[in-house]
């Protein structure tokens, strides 16, 4: 076990994936000499060369579009989008080409791309640097969506994402990049499937489902709660592992879904709908969502009010129990 930040764990995972498969290439803005604006690719260009860690022009649609071509040619491009708010120029390529090529070629052409996107707020950033775009991608058939919540999960899931023959939108919770955790660098990344939710803390009274940056917040809230809270890290947003959530809700009868993204048509809505389909008769209360409001991400001085925090999670827990 080694203690390291999530940024370092991702770096180690990328390194392992590149050692394992020579057709893995990293592609993105400022990822080479600078090592990425969050230093996730630090040192990789030096060790693997400029032909495998490629500094791209400043053009997101271009980066993803050319990665589609490279994938057709048998490479496994791992794209870095610098910030969440900058992925939208590439949205057309992702939705129209990355997601649909396998289907349109009747399975002949796979798109083993990974598109890494630092996402979420909480870092005092300026406009367009704190967004949570996951629902757009989850809504798009043909894309898989993963988001790690701690360094060990990051180390393993980035390798699994790269090994997947499907395109993976890999959302990195940027406010957790510098959180440290124990990482077993010898762990076999293929021992467990990444496409599952994880019960991180068992509990009996209320189930709290969350992912990415909110996982730490929810674990802290569970610790502070005056009832027994089960915390589930969804981890795989597409496919969504509803079975683990439903099994928990069958015991607790109460579910709170927590995410930073706005509530309307977000992951919370999907989880609520699926749980009501799966285990309606176990629900002692409606599924509650504790989320960002339906507003553009606010100026950073207000983000504390926008982002669900320990108090808001506990308020949700209180309300779902009082129902």
């Amino acid at each position: 076990m080694t203690t390291m930040t999530m940024a370092k764990a991702l770096n180690a995972g990328l390194r392992r994936a590149m050692e394992r498969e020579r057709r893995v290439v990293l592609f993105g803005e400022d990822i080479g000499r600078l090592g990425g604006v969050f230093r996730v690719t630090d040192g990789l260009q030096k060790d693997f060369g400029e032909h495998r860690v490629i500094d791209a022009p400043l053009a997101e649609s271009g980066i993803v579009g050319t990665s589609v071509g490279m994938a057709m040619r048998g490479f496994r491009p791992v794209v870095e989008i610098q910030f969440d708010g900058f992925v939208y120029p590439a949205f057309d390529q992702i939705v129209s080409q990355v997601a649909k090529t396998l289907r349109r070629t009747d399975g002949a052409v796979r798109m083993p791309l990974v598109i890494r996107i630092p996402y979420g707020g909480g870092i005092g950033a300026v406009e367009h640097h704190s967004e949570s775009p996951e629902a757009y991608f989850v809504h798009t058939a043909g894309l898989r969506v993963l988001t790690p919540s701690d360094p060990q999960a990051a180390y393993l899931t980035i390798q699994q994402a790269i090994a997947s023959d499907d395109p993976v939108i890999y959302l990195e919770p940027k406010r957790r990049y510098w959180d440290k955790g124990e990482v077993d660098l010898d762990a076999d990344p293929f021992a467990l499937s990444p496409w599952h939710a994880r019960v991180l803390r068992p509990g009996d009274d209320v189930t709290v489902a969350c992912y990415g940056p909110m996982v730490r917040t929810c674990l802290e809230a569970a610790e502070a709660a005056d009832c027994s809270v089960e915390v589930i890290d969804l981890q795989s947003l597409s496919p969504l592992d509803i079975d683990v959530v439903a099994a928990s809700v069958r015991r607790t009868g109460h579910l709170v879904v927590v995410h930073e993204a706005s509530s309307t048509a977000g992951l919370g809505a999907e989880v609520a709908a699926r749980v009501s389909e799966e285990c309606f008769y176990s629900l002692e209360a409606p599924v509650l969502r504790v989320t960002g409001y339906d507003v553009p991400y606010p100026a950073s001085r207000l983000e504390e009010h926008f982002l669900p925090d320990l108090d808001r999670v506990l308020d949700g827990v209180d309300r779902v129990r009082a129902f």
Partner: peptide, 16 residues
């Protein structure tokens, strides 16, 4: 101050 990030909760209890 601005550049101090969002306050994180503490496991010891509710802040407010």
């Amino acid at each position: 101050l601005v550049g101090y990030g969002v306050k994180e909760g503490t496991p010891s209890g509710r802040r407010r």
